[in-house]
Simulated assay, not measured.
Amino acid sequence: MTDRDAYVQGLRDLADWVEAHPAAPVPPNDHLLVPLHTNAAVHEVAHELGVEEEYDNEDFVEHCARSDERRAHEWADKNGMSLRPAKELPEGGEAS
């Protein structure tokens, strides 16, 4: 069984358990968090499911890149360093 197959089976098992336990609490809304990391992926899945898209206007990948850069600058500042753009390497890729 692949990891994906196991995940799908886990969702089925969870649905069966929730159905068999009517007193079990469930989320107060119909939101389901799915790991789609770009707005294009959200659009594609929403279109296939026939549901309305609901996401912020930022791709997750772009969000992570900005967050990583911010944290790197914070770490450098905390450690008495600074980050600056690297100079482009000359032809052949060797630093002088």
Score class of each variant (00 low, 15 high):
2 T>G: 08
4 R>D: 15
4 R>V: 10
5 D>R: 11
5 D>Y: 06
5 D>P: 02
5 D>V: 05
6 A>E: 07
6 A>H: 08
7 Y>H: 12
7 Y>G: 03
7 Y>I: 14
7 Y>A: 14
7 Y>M: 10
8 V>A: 12
9 Q>D: 08
10 G>H: 05
11 L>V: 04
13 D>A: 12
13 D>V: 05
13 D>E: 09
14 L>G: 02
14 L>P: 00
14 L>N: 07
15 A>K: 03
16 D>Y: 01
18 V>L: 15
18 V>M: 10
19 E>Y: 09
19 E>R: 12
19 E>H: 14
20 A>L: 04
20 A>W: 00
20 A>M: 01
21 H>N: 15
24 A>Q: 10
24 A>D: 01
25 P>L: 10
25 P>Q: 13
25 P>R: 14
25 P>F: 03
27 P>N: 07
29 N>S: 14
30 D>R: 10
30 D>G: 15
30 D>S: 14
30 D>T: 13
31 H>V: 15
31 H>M: 13
33 L>S: 13
35 P>C: 03
38 T>M: 07
39 N>Q: 14
40 A>M: 09
40 A>Q: 15
41 A>I: 01
41 A>M: 11
41 A>Q: 13
41 A>S: 12
42 V>L: 08
43 H>T: 15
44 E>G: 07
44 E>C: 04
45 V>F: 06
45 V>W: 05
46 A>C: 11
46 A>V: 02
47 H>V: 06
48 E>C: 02
48 E>L: 06
48 E>I: 00
49 L>D: 00
50 G>L: 00
50 G>I: 02
50 G>F: 00
51 V>P: 01
51 V>N: 06
52 E>F: 01
52 E>P: 00
52 E>N: 05
53 E>C: 04
54 E>S: 14
54 E>L: 09
55 Y>I: 11
57 N>S: 12
58 E>P: 01
59 D>Q: 02
59 D>G: 02
60 F>E: 03
60 F>L: 06
60 F>H: 06
61 V>R: 00
61 V>L: 03
61 V>G: 02
61 V>I: 11
62 E>Q: 08
63 H>N: 10
63 H>V: 03
63 H>E: 10
63 H>F: 15
64 C>T: 01
64 C>Y: 00
66 R>A: 02
66 R>K: 09
67 S>A: 13
67 S>K: 11
67 S>H: 12
67 S>Y: 06
68 D>I: 12
68 D>S: 14
68 D>T: 13
69 E>K: 03
69 E>R: 08
70 R>V: 00
72 A>R: 01
73 H>Q: 10
73 H>E: 10
74 E>L: 09
74 E>D: 10
76 A>N: 06
78 K>E: 15
78 K>W: 05
78 K>T: 13
79 N>R: 08
79 N>D: 02
79 N>C: 02
79 N>I: 05
80 G>P: 05
81 M>D: 01
81 M>A: 08
81 M>E: 03
82 S>Y: 06
82 S>D: 06
82 S>G: 04
82 S>V: 13
82 S>K: 12
83 L>A: 00
83 L>K: 03
85 P>Q: 07
85 P>T: 09
86 A>N: 11
87 K>S: 12
88 E>I: 05
88 E>C: 06
90 P>D: 03
90 P>W: 05
90 P>I: 06
91 E>R: 08
91 E>L: 12
94 E>D: 12
95 A>D: 13
95 A>L: 13
